[in-house]
Amino acid sequence: MNLMPEFSHALVVCISAIFTQNILLSYFLGLCPFIGSSREIKSALGLGAAVIFVMTCTCALNWLVYHKVLVPLHLEFFRFIMFIIVIAAFVQFVEMAIDRLSPSLYQKLGVFLPLITVNCAILGASLFMVIRDYNFISTVGYGLGSGTGWFMAIVVMANIRTRLNNDAIPKGLQGAGITLIIVGIMALAFIGFTGVLAGK
C-alpha cells in the first residue's frame, strides 16, 4: 500500500496547524493557561512541551475512540464525555510519570498539570479533528502541529513578557491586558503566513 500521499497530507495539515491556523492565535483556544503561565520562560517551556505531548497522544486516542467505538455504536453525541474522560485519564498518567521521572519539573508544573485537563485547546483539537474528518495519520499530524503552534506561541510570549518587566505599563493594562495586546500583534503577524499553503 502506498502511504506517500497520506503522509504528505498529514505534513500539510501539521504545518498549517502551526502557522496559518494556529490553535491559539486564530481559534482562541487555550488562552487561560496561556495568560496564567507565560510569566517565566522555564515554566512556559515545560507547560508547552507537556501540551505538545498530551495533545498529540489524546488526538490519536480520541480518533480511535471516536471512529472505532462511538461511530459503530451510533453514539456520536456522546463524544464530549468520552473525549474528556480520555483526556483526564491521560493527564493523570502523565502527572504520575513526571512525578516519578523529574520531581523538580513536577514542582514547577504541579499547579498547571491538572489545568491541562480543562485546557480548551486539548479538547478543541480533538473536536476539530472530528469536524474536519481527518484520517488517522492526519490526526496525529494535526495534534502535533497544534501542540507545536501552542508551544511556540507561549515560549515567544514568555520571552516578550520577561522583557516587559521593567517597562512602565499603565496600571489597568498590567497583566492580562498587555498580554492580550501582544497576542493580538502576534496573531496579526501570523496572518502573514496565510497563503503559504493556499495552493493545497
Partner: peptide, 15 residues
C-alpha cells in the same frame, strides 16, 4: 479577523 478580538478585549479590560 481574529487579532481584533484580542485587541478589543484588551482595551475593554483596560477601561
Amino acid at each position: 479577523m481574529p487579532p481584533s478580538a484580542f485587541f478589543v478585549l484588551a482595551i475593554i479590560i483596560w477601561v
